[in-house]
Simulated assay, not measured.
Amino acid sequence: MTTPADSRPNLDRIRQEIADGYDEELELELEEARLDRILGDAPELEERDTLDRKIYFRELFRLQHELVELQDWIQHHKLRVVVLFEGRDSAGKGGVIKRITQRLNPRICRVAALPAPNERERTQWYFQRYVAHLPAGGEMVLFDRSWYNRAGVEHVMGFCTDAEYEEFFRSVPEFERMLVRSGIILLKYWFSITDEEQEFRFNMRIQDPLKQWKLSPMDVESRRRWEDYTRAKEVMLERTHIPEAPWWVVEAVDKKRARLNCISHLLSQIPYGQVEHPPVVLPERERHEDYVRHPVPSEMYVPNVF
Rank of each mutant, 00 (worst) to 15 (best):
L67R: 01
L60S: 00
R225D: 06
C262P: 06
Y229A: 03
L104C: 14
Y22F: 11
I38F: 03
D144Y: 12
S7V: 00
L260M: 11
E29Y: 13
S171P: 10
H294P: 01
R257K: 10
E221V: 01
F169W: 01
E119R: 02
G183W: 10
Y130W: 05
D49W: 05
H76E: 08
H294R: 09
P278V: 06
F306G: 15
W73M: 00
V235D: 14
D208W: 12
V250Y: 14
N105I: 07
V281C: 05
L282R: 10
M300D: 13
G95H: 10
N105Q: 02
R107D: 10
I108D: 03
E139W: 08
A5D: 01
D52S: 07
R53C: 05
M178D: 07
P271R: 08
T101Q: 08
V235R: 14
I263A: 13
L63D: 02
L104M: 11
D162C: 03
E27W: 05
E86K: 00
T161P: 04
W147S: 06
P173S: 13
T230W: 03
K256P: 01
R80L: 08
V68F: 14
N261I: 00
E27Y: 05
H277P: 00
F85V: 05
K93H: 08
T123L: 04
P278N: 03
L60R: 03
K98V: 04
K233R: 12
I270W: 12
R170F: 02
P135S: 06
I206A: 02
G92A: 09
P297F: 11
E17V: 05
A113D: 12
E299Q: 12
R53E: 11
P271Y: 08
I193D: 11
Q198W: 11
W226T: 02
K255E: 00
H288L: 13
V250H: 09
E251R: 07
L186K: 05
F191I: 03
H265C: 15
T3R: 15
E25P: 03
E199C: 04
K255T: 01
R110K: 14
M157H: 10
E59M: 04
R8M: 13
E154G: 00
K233V: 09
W247L: 09
G158M: 07
L35D: 14
F127S: 03
L51E: 10
A91D: 15
K188E: 12
I18K: 14
V250Q: 08
R170C: 02
I38H: 06
H288F: 15
H77R: 13
S7L: 11
G40E: 12
V302E: 12
N118F: 14
I206W: 01
V111Y: 05
V280Y: 09
W213F: 15
P4L: 14
L267H: 04
R293H: 06
P115F: 09
R231C: 04
P297K: 02
D162T: 01
S192K: 07
A151G: 05
E284M: 10
Y148D: 07
E289Q: 15
L186C: 09
R13C: 08
T2G: 12
T50Q: 15
